[in-house]
Amino acid sequence: MYHDIANDIIAKINDGTFDVKLPTEQELTSQYEVSRNTIRRAIDVVYQRGLLRRVQGSGYYVNNQPSASKAIMNLSIGTGLAMHSPDSKLTSKVVTFDKIRVTHAEARLMRVADNTEMWRVVRVRYLDDEIYNLEHSYYPTSVVPVLTVDAVNDSIFEFLDETYDIQPTSSEDYVSIEALTADQASPLGQQPGEKVLALSQLNFCGNGLFFNYSISQYVYPGMRFYFHAANLSSN
């Protein structure tokens, strides 16, 4: 329930309904007809995504976004959530969907044991029918026993939330400029050696439980990354 409310608040921030400040908790409680605790959990999700700042005694204010681009990747929560317009559509073309046993090199990247069984998903993603990125992602079968074709073709993270109550709580992100290999360039319609933005992520849920590793190459025009840092010092 609170995730649905969080998503609705995010949509209202993106479309300008909430452009300066969120309504009070009491107003949101009345609007969504839920408990104050549910509203607080929803606000916490939005806050973690870097869209809000809290002013003591005054409430939650909307952070100004750094660009009008419809393809800003929000790294504040660590899942690479796109901050494109709610009217935009993100779709997928699956290249590979199978189970593998990770090699020693792959295991080191994911910090798991050699030969760990993983779901492997390779897909090209499109934003409004224009190529967005090439994504290689991996999910340990010990954490995600079942991964469906429908989920792979749509939103894997939504499936994990709904099926296993898995939500990302922390991540490690690495952004770089990389030259495309021939295998990467072909599905992206690019030339080998073309330099693009790349993002690798380790995603964790619950008590630091690893559930996903991904590496993506972005070719969408105007692609940017956004990160919001909060000062947690008590001084």
Rank of each mutant, 00 (worst) to 15 (best):
G208Q: 06
N153G: 11
V62H: 03
A105R: 08
R49L: 08
V175R: 08
T148H: 11
R41D: 09
S171R: 06
Y61I: 05
D114L: 13
D19I: 05
R40Q: 02
S200A: 01
P168R: 03
L209T: 09
L232Q: 03
N37P: 15
L199S: 05
D44S: 07
D128H: 07
E135F: 11
V102L: 01
V196A: 03
T38P: 02
E106C: 05
Q190W: 11
I9K: 03
E162N: 13
L52K: 08
Y218T: 00
N64Y: 00
L51Q: 01
A185T: 10
K70P: 02
P221Y: 01
I131Y: 12
D15I: 00
S216M: 04
A82V: 15
A71K: 15
V34S: 13
F204K: 03
G189F: 07
T24R: 04
I156G: 13
Y60F: 04
K21N: 02
S216Y: 01
P168H: 09
D165S: 15
E158I: 15
M83D: 04
G206Y: 04
P192I: 04
A229D: 02
K89L: 12
Y174F: 06
K21Y: 01
L75K: 05
L52M: 09
R125P: 05
I9L: 08
M223R: 03
Y139P: 02
I215P: 05
M223N: 08
G193D: 04
A42W: 03
V95T: 13
F225L: 11
H3K: 14
G78Q: 06
V20R: 11
C205A: 14
I43E: 05
N115W: 09
N235K: 07
G16N: 08
F159T: 13
H136V: 11
N63D: 13
A105S: 07
F204G: 05
Q56E: 13
V34G: 10
A107Q: 04
T163H: 11
A179Y: 10
V46C: 06
I13W: 07
F225G: 03
M83Y: 06
E130Y: 10
I131L: 14
Q201M: 03
R101M: 12
S234G: 06
A71E: 15
S137C: 13
H228D: 01
F97I: 03
L127N: 10
Y126G: 14
I13M: 02
K99T: 13
Y126D: 14
N231C: 04
A71L: 14
E158G: 14
T163Q: 11
L75F: 06
M223Y: 05
S142H: 14
N37E: 13
L51Y: 03
V143C: 07
S233Y: 01
V219G: 07
E117K: 13
T38G: 02
G59Q: 12
A107V: 08
N207K: 07
